[in-house]
């Protein structure tokens, strides 16, 4: 069983919802990312989503955009992200890792080369924001060959007929985008999310994770009531940025601690949800 299936099976047995944390590899520093990932797991993350920095992250709001910019300024690259996963796996063989990024760095690396390197490093799945089903054949073939899950986004604007074609291709889980907008947008409407998740569930038995716009324990709890997992990204990065803004001389462990504290509070909020 893949790490992702095992994780969702375990969560179901425990009657809990999964927590997915997103940070950008190389932000705030390349040398700190592996440690941050371990800390996020300790704070309650069930699945790690690792952002692959790109010069033109067109689906990201300003918080994650700036994370990409910092990571690139720090010299992070796709190979660098794979190296981070490799090191992480030396100590943690259980927690699934999803890489999330954009098509061009992967195209440049080569789909087959990337799939092979990803599998070897211990990556479990891939979300490529700008590879909708229409453009995904080539990479899908490469990922399938090494049993890496290709994870698709379904958005509030995705028509039902299209949901059917997406779930046919999807593996691992479905990533349900909570809002029309970029990452970090506000105004998540829990009722709308519930309706969208229900439609997705009527089309697939795959677990459904909900992300975009989840900032705190309250919004996570609202979403966890209908989803199998909740994704938190911009809020974690924002928490770290605030530390440095407030105290430019803050140490890296102080910066990481802010993300860890937020994730812990979200975990607590979710687990106390009357689900």
């Amino acid at each position: 069983m893949s790490r992702l299936s095992a994780t969702f099976a375990r969560l179901q047995n425990e009657g809990r919802q999964g927590l997915v944390s997103y940070v950008v590899a190389g932000d705030p520093s390349p040398s700190g990312t592996v440690g941050l990932l371990h800390q996020l797991v300790a704070a309650g993350a069930d699945i790690l989503e690792v952002g692959v920095p790109f010069s033109d992250p067109m689906a990201e709001g300003s918080v994650i955009q700036k994370g990409h910019e910092r990571a690139l300024a720090n010299g992070m690259s796709l190979q660098g992200v794979l190296d981070i996963v490799t090191v992480f796996r030396q100590e943690d063989q259980q927690t699934p890792i999803i890489m999330m990024g954009y098509a061009n760095p992967i195209e440049r690396f080569g789909y087959e080369a990337f799939a092979a390197a990803g599998a070897k490093a211990g990556v479990d799945g891939l979300i490529t924001v700008d590879l909708p089903p229409e453009e995904v054949d080539a990479i899908d073939t490469a990922l399938k060959a090494v049993a890496l899950d290709n994870i698709f986004l379904i958005s509030p604007t995705t028509p039902t007929a299209r949901i059917e074609t997406i779930v046919e291709r999807a593996r691992g889980f479905i990533y349900c985008v909570a809002v029309k907008g970029v990452t970090g947008s506000g105004n998540l409407d829990a009722n709308e999310v519930a309706r969208n998740v229900a439609v997705i569930r009527s089309k697939t038995a795959l677990p459904v994770a909900v992300g975009f716009g989840i900032k705190d324990a309250a919004s996570a709890r609202a979403v966890a009531a209908v989803a199998d997992a909740v994704v938190v990204g911009s809020a974690l990065i924002d928490a770290m940025v605030r530390v440095t803004e407030h105290e430019p001389a803050a140490t890296e462990s102080q910066v990481h601690a802010a993300a860890v504290a937020l994730l812990e509070s979200i975990r607590l909020g979710m687990d106390s949800s009357p689900s």
Binding site: P132, E134, T157, T158
Partner: peptide, 12 residues
């Protein structure tokens, strides 16, 4: 060419 965009834009 093609349509390399986020899912939210596909139906538009």
């Amino acid at each position: 060419g093609g349509k390399f965009v986020a899912e939210t834009l596909m139906s538009a």
